[in-house]
């Protein structure tokens, strides 16, 4: 008990003892939302903004987001940049290599609907949602780091609200 008394942030004095009651779901999902490791998947302009968000001024780490270079260790794929027809199968492959539960953020206009390359382009995939399921869309060309942070917080809210049944393997 001595240790717990030194950590007032984590426990509250409760009548008759120092036990915090919560559900497994809430504890798990809170933990999960606060440690989203994202895959370094940048293809185009948005990747530079993704890097800026990870660097000094915007500091992605405070959301518990650390970049991973391999899909096997990542929970989240931030599709930053245009996905072309040549790249689309590779994006699907990377998504398939990630372990469940996995999330996708579509960053920027190109990943939503082709962005500025919607008209007159013969090689751009018009939206990544026909390749992989998307959880959060962030519009912009490219979105500012603040919008990316906002998008990640939105995803965290979504994770916190899910139930354990969502963990089941989906087809």
């Amino acid at each position: 008990m001595g240790l717990i008394k030194k950590l007032p942030v984590y426990t509250e004095k409760m009548p008759g003892g120092g036990i915090v009651m919560t559900s497994l779901e809430a504890a798990l999902h809170n933990a999960q939302a606060k440690s989203l490791w994202y895959l370094l998947f940048g293809t185009a302009c948005c990747a530079i903004e993704l890097m800026c968000t990870g660097a000094s001024r915007y500091d992605f780490d405070r959301l518990g987001m650390i970049f991973r270079a391999t899909p096997r260790q990542a929970d989240l794929i931030i599709a930053a940049g245009t996905i072309t027809k040549k790249m689309a199968p590779r994006l699907r492959l990377l998504y398939d290599q990630m372990a469940e539960p996995r999330y996708v953020i579509a960053m920027g206009g190109c990943t939503i609907k082709g962005g500025p390359f919607y008209y007159d382009s013969y090689s751009v995939e018009k939206g990544i949602d026909h390749i992989i399921p998307v959880d959060v869309y962030i519009p912009g060309c490219p979105p500012r780091p603040e919008s990316l942070l906002e998008g990640c917080i939105t995803l965290q809210e979504k994770i916190k609200k899910q139930s354990l049944l969502d963990w089941q393997e989906k087809d």
């Binding site: 293809t43 072309t84 040549k86 007159d120 090689s123």
Partner: peptide, 28 residues
Amino acid sequence: GYLHRSIEKICENRTYAQCIPILDRFEY
């Protein structure tokens, strides 16, 4: 070619003023 976005084809179908924002994405 994994990021081949056909910027050249797009520019052929834009006016000169409209080409400039497309070329922004050429070397961002």
